[in-house]
Amino acid sequence: MSRAEAVRAVSPLWTLGLLRSELLTTFRRWRTLALLGVLAAVPVLVGIAVRIETGDGSSAGGGGGGGPAFISQITNNGLFLVFTALAATLPFFLPMAIGVVAGDAVAGEANTGTLRYLLVAPAGRTRLLLTKYATVMTFCLVATLVVAVSALITGALLFPLGDLTTISGTRISFSEGLARALLIALVVAVSLIGVAALGLFVSTLTNSGIAAMATTVGLLITVQIVDQIPQLHAVHPYLFSHYWLSFADLMREPVYWDDLTRNLGLQALYAAVFGSAAWARFTAKDISA
């Protein structure tokens, strides 16, 4: 048992070092940067499209409330572009990016043969897995903030800013609006931890990074489709994507917390179930590559 004791004696700084090296590896990949670039481009595209469409004074979304949430408000207040961009990217772009990064986390290392070198270091599998999960969650946050910041800059450049009207019809100041936008970005990032845990679990099942990414994104699409079928409404509350758009409830006055707390609880449940499943799988896995 001497080796196990050696593991326990490792200083916590070592874990930070491991996390830092994981973060650097992840964020230096061209693939990651390309994903972030695509995410940053979405709000720019939406902003320019709305600007062109409303150039003649007509309202966005055809005035009938079509299109992504909040889109009819963008022309009056650029801050709404943040909400629209998050509402537009959350159903697909964001989780797909998370799926790619999470799916690659373990399977990618196994595929390139670097996983065993990581395990040679006295880190322990549990700790390595936690580090991987922390990295994926950091990516969730960074990806969401990239969308939000890109949307804020685009909105500020193309549209006026100022006091805004909540969807309940009350008015809040611009600074409170900014604070809510930040809170919404955090909630969106947290909404993604369920799919991140799922991706990590899938990643421990296979030695092929591509297979893990494809499975995660495939599951994501399947869940989104199931969520659209009214006959399956009994299972909807248990799908990780079901309460994603509840972040818009933060723009109500007073905030309507029911769906938000349900969303957070559901994400925690997914993280616990698939995180522990990933742990069960990874700590007992044969690492042959």
Partner: peptide
């Protein structure tokens, strides 16, 4: 978290 098992560090076999 579960205690460290000895096979945390070992490969199968």
């Amino acid at each position: 978290m579960a205690p460290y098992e000895s096979d945390d560090m070992t490969t199968a076999g």
